[in-house]
Design a protein around this nucleic acid. Structure first.
Length: 414
RNA sequence: CGGGGUGUAGUUCAUCGGUAGAACGCUCGGUUUGGGACCGAGAAGCAGGAGGUUCAAUUCCUCUCACCCCGACCA
């Protein structure tokens, strides 16, 4: 991609009042734009990052046998009455509910347990058909009392939600633990060290759930965890212990951002909605159910909160919008320009994602500043000075080095 | 929903009872080109909205809307 085609261009100033880093840097870099409080456009660069995040999630969930699909966001009231959640106070506080001009009532999706259950119920399932594991990436609407912290808490945001249906509690927990391990792997691949944290089930279940927390001062949650990392619990259910029950290690506390959450829902939904499977004896049994969420847009914000410096974002390679930021200097010089174009095409031919700053009347300093702000892992400069080599600087390192194209290619090929 | 802050050019901000100014950005011309270059010219604003006080309101008052922050609540 040529930088001259990128929309919009970087901004020198952060929006007035923007305090959180993800808000400042993602807007300045041209990754996202605010429509209203808690509501954001993912601009082309931001969408590239979120797509990288989504693809990592997709790859890992597919390995567990889960299938991707997509469900509606506009729901009729009766589906929510069938679980009894439409009228619950805690649900009404976060769910957008409204009537159309004819008086028919609708809700905007803030989660999809009811919809998945409804689909399962139509299938006349036997024990042979289970387990079923379904997931989607889609928008969630939640009428937050207060949107805040840039893209970290919005009223409309992207979520990957996975739902699994099982014949027994054992089978549900078997998969639940598989997903728990998978989530840790997913976050690690993105460059995040997540802490698996016990927490309450909120509006989803009476059972405890597990949250995936990333330590950060801007995090809204406070978690308590063992210094040896074999125990962590959310403040909401913390019992005040000073030492770990398992190893006796000290309990520490810190702020953290919740990037994922998994819920062993049990048979509550299947019983409420009367969704059964037929067991070996031909008898109806309630389906064991669980749900699992990750917020890709929140993950993007979390990454910015963690990976940045005073110049801008420092994307981990796995989620960077491009792998290489090719900066052409002295592009007035036709031989430099044709060399830059040649290298640009070589990268493309080798399937290296490259952003080529092809602007002619822009100073070197401005191009470097933009490269630092956007935060692509490898900056590659071509100028009068570089001759038959390329000047390489990693975004997260200080020094530069000169390499031939083939040597660089080995570094940037994943 | 309670508390606080802020709304003036595309953006970030100044100004101040007599209907507005800078920087950056943008357009044009020229000179430049290794850390946000320089010179010149130019376009760009119902001062968030409504009401009030006043001869006169961007400025003072009231209401309202929006955004940000703290809290409550929540993933």
């Amino acid at each position: 991609m040529k930088y001259s085609l990128i929309f919009p261009k970087t901004k020198r100033e952060a929006p007035a009042g923007a305090e959180s880093l993800n808000h400042q840097l993602l807007v300045r870099g041209g990754f996202m734009d605010q429509l209203m409080s808690g509501s954001w456009t993912l601009l082309p660069l931001g969408l590239r990052v979120v797509s990288k995040i989504n693809n990592i999630i997709r790859e890992e969930l597919n390995k567990t046998g889960a299938l991707e699909m997509q469900m509606p966001l506009l729901h009729p009231r009766d589906i929510w009455d069938s679980s009894g959640r439409w009228s619950k106070k805690e649900v009404q506080e976060i769910m957008y509910q409204f009537k159309d001009i004819h008086g028919k009532e609708y809700g905007l999706s803030f989660t999809h347990e009811e919809i998945v259950m409804n689909i399962l119920g139509k299938q006349n399932l036997s024990y042979k058909d289970l387990p079923v594991k379904l997931y989607q990436f889609s928008t969630k609407f939640r009428n937050e009392p207060r949107a805040k912290s840039g893209i970290l808490r919005g009223r409309e945001f992207l979520m990957k939600d996975l739902y699994s249906a099982h014949v027994s509690e054992e089978d549900m927990y078997k998969y639940y633990h598989e997903v728990k391990e998978t989530y840790t792997k997913i976050f690690k691949r993105m460059g995040l060290e997540s802490i698996t944290t016990e927490a309450s089930g909120g509006v989803f279940t009476d059972k405890n759930s597990h949250e995936f927390q990333v330590l950060s001062d801007v995090g809204e949650d406070t978690i308590y965890f063992c210094e040896n990392n074999d125990f962590a619990v959310n403040k909401e259910i913390f019992d005040g212990a000073k030492f770990c029950h398992k190893c006796g290690g000290k309990i520490k506390s810190a702020n953290a951002i919740e990037v994922g959450n998994i819920f062993p829902l049990g048979t509550k939904y299947s019983k409420d909605m009367k969704v059964f499977y037929i067991d070996e004896k031909g008898k109806e049994q309630p389906i064991w159910f669980a749900s699992y969420g990750i917020g890709p847009t929140r993950v993007m914000g979390t990454l910015v909160e963690i990976y940045n410096d005073d110049k801008g974002i420092i994307w981990p390679e796995a989620v960077a919008p491009f792998m290489v930021h090719l900066v052409g200097l002295d592009l007035n010089d036709s031989s430099v320009k044709s060399e830059a174009e040649r290298i640009y095409k070589l990268f493309q031919a080798d399937d290296v994602e490259v952003l080529y700053d092809d602007r002619i009347d822009v100073s070197a300093g401005e191009k470097f500043a933009d490269a630092d702000l956007i935060g692509i892992p490898y900056r590659v400069v071509i100028s009068k000075k570089t001759g038959d080599k390329l000047e390489i600087k990693k975004r997260n390192e200080r020094g530069t080095r000169f390499l031939k194209f083939e040597e660089l290619l080995k570094l940037v090929k994943i």
